[in-house]
Amino acid sequence: MEHARPARAPLGDGARRGERQARVNTGGRRLTMKSGINIVVCVKQVPDTATVRKLRAEDSTIDREDPNSSGVLNELDEYAIEEGLRLKEAHGGEVTILTMGPAKAAETIRKALAMGTDKAVHLMDPALHGSDAVQTSYAMAQTLKKIGFDLVILGSESTDARTGLLAAMLAERLGVPQLSLANKVVVDGSAISIHRVTDYGYDRVESSLPAVVSVVEKTNEPRYPRLKEIMAAKKKPVTTFGIADVEIDPGRIGLAGAYTEVAEFAVAPPRAAGVVVKDEGDGGVKVADFLTSKKFI
């Protein structure tokens, strides 16, 4: 069921503000749409969810440079890349990969380039270590301002921190509309509309470009890299920026100044036994009640 309500989007989504902003944008920022869409897909290397993930004892951060841990492209980011590629195929333009992370994150850049994206920007600086979501959004926003964009696409969250905050924070910092939790993205000229998944179906949310979109899984079917693209990937431009290159204030990033702090951490306890429903003639009702409480039905 479709709920088309662009003007009544819930607070915090940014779509309403986006409508206002659309008018501002039309006269203000000049889009580069003439030659297609300038798409930037933000990706993150995360620990493989199939392995046991550990934090560093000394500062409770993920050891992102452990050569023995396999870092993988955050799964939701594959959908973001695929969406970017499809929009490029439909409208022209180019898809730039942006990642922030240590040298090892180059593995993830290669994978993203091998899916067929055009070039990459790697924000890498020791000073960024331990940055939380607020600081990361600042660093990424500074980089995005430097490289320019019509559309920024992200996966709706990463499998490591799972804050799901970055898209909203980026949109705010960049002063552009945020269209969140999309499972369908349509661009028409300088307008963009998405289907935002909800408990009851979806909302259609519209805004103008430039904008930030976050996508959920099952938005599309991400393509496999092709051998030809793997071979071409090494010839594609990858620009590495340190914090000075994109005018990041070192006082606003890094573990020491983080707004959030991991006080302690522990391995999650093994899953507790499930709920056993004893059927005394009302088993069906009890099961239905349980499923309703979990919002399955």
């Binding site: 290669r110 496999y224 890299p225 051998l227 793997i230 090494k234």
Partner: peptide, 15 residues
């Protein structure tokens, strides 16, 4: 080579 590593990663994922 690096590209062979990436190829094998792709093949494992695909398979």
């Amino acid at each position: 080579s690096q590209e062979a590593e990436d190829l094998l990663d792709l093949v494992r994922d695909f398979a």
